Amino acid sequence: MVSENVEDKLREFAEDPDFPHREAARHALRFRSSGEVSDLVAIADEPHGCGTTELLFAMAGEKRTWLNWVPMPEEAVINISRDIARRRAAGEEAEITELGLSGGEPPSALAAFERAAGKPVKIGIAEFGEPDMRVPLRPGRFAVWRYQGDEAEPAVFAPSGEAVRVLHQVGAEPWASPLSGYVQAEPFGDLPLDDLLGLLVHPPQAPDIPRYQVLARSDPAYWYRLLQPWVCLGILHHEKQEPWATSTRRQVLVDLAFGVEDWVSDAALFALVTAAYRQPEIRDEVRGLVADRMLAATRAPRPVTIWTSLAHLMLITPNATADDRSLAAAILKQNEEPEPEPEPQPRSNRSRERRWPRWLGGRR
């Protein structure tokens, strides 16, 4: 990625008669100003695609959610883990042994919170609401979480030491774009599927490098959010010789996307969107999957913590329709609106109440 102003550099490329990818540079500029996903698709579909066009794609998506970085977690337990980390970094005592939640939160978020807390925490959940996040939206063959009553537990074994090594090798640095991230994730393809699934729910500690040492003092749970999209990109490399429609890699990612509600859900969809940029023939299918998952979250009368993340993902999905984009934009606009502080509740984290756009036909 270039260090100078991205718009200025793209404009320079677009106006240079000797630059071989002027049209791709123009599309990159247009995407940065309008966010129109067809411009990103045009860059990916450049007839003479190469490392330069991949750089232009990365420049177009710089600092954009999912294109350049994984969205920050929004769960109540993650906010608490951030507070714990900051207080400890300031030399304060910060211990928690018991916590009450008004509603269920993704099992990955709860696992990341316990890692940040440093010991098991007794978590009470008042209710799960409807639709029950513990029940997959669609039946599937592959799952990484299962529930015993109110408590989620891994449905797969822990990964091998080699799998952890590969994760640390691949995930030590962020991706410049999904296209480069796909290439970066290629070493995952040498791992057994059981190892890849195990990494999703038995996450190791972050690499012991300055980036994550700093992050551990402010947002220790973010590593656990970040690693899952990396692993899902790795799943795209599993048994790549299999035809897409009947492939294990496709079935795994679809099952995870529509399994129990979790960070793994949108991580799997992100990998599918990445595949769609590389394979035009699957774009309609992937667009339908992302739209269905976002609509399911929108129709839920209870809070869905990955709702805005799904909206961000919809906006970068190839072949997204005008209705898809309108709904995603409405979700993000609604999420930005200020809301009154809730009444303090002892031993409870009250998630923000959803206010539905009238044109969605939702509850008010």
Score class of each variant (00 low, 15 high):
66 W>I: 05
66 W>N: 00
69 W>Q: 10
69 W>L: 01
71 P>L: 03
71 P>G: 14
74 E>A: 10
74 E>D: 15
74 E>V: 03
76 A>R: 09
77 V>C: 11
79 N>K: 09
83 D>V: 02
86 R>E: 13
87 R>C: 11
88 R>N: 11
88 R>I: 13
90 A>V: 00
91 G>L: 09
98 E>Q: 11
98 E>N: 05
106 P>Q: 10
106 P>W: 07
107 P>V: 11
108 S>A: 02
108 S>I: 06
110 L>E: 04
110 L>I: 02
110 L>Q: 14
111 A>S: 01
111 A>G: 01
112 A>I: 02
112 A>T: 02
113 F>Y: 09
114 E>F: 11
118 G>C: 01
119 K>M: 05
124 G>E: 15
124 G>D: 14
126 A>T: 11
126 A>R: 08
128 F>W: 09
132 D>Y: 06
136 P>W: 09
136 P>E: 08
139 P>C: 12
143 A>G: 10
147 Y>F: 15
148 Q>D: 08
148 Q>A: 06
151 E>W: 03
153 E>M: 12
156 V>G: 00
157 F>R: 06
159 P>I: 10
161 G>N: 08
164 V>F: 10
165 R>K: 04
166 V>Q: 14
166 V>N: 10
167 L>G: 09
172 A>P: 00
174 P>Q: 05
177 S>K: 02
184 Q>T: 02
185 A>I: 05
186 E>P: 01
187 P>M: 09
187 P>W: 13
195 D>L: 12
196 L>G: 07
196 L>H: 03
197 L>E: 01
199 L>H: 00
200 L>K: 02
200 L>E: 00
200 L>I: 03
205 Q>L: 05
205 Q>I: 01
206 A>T: 04
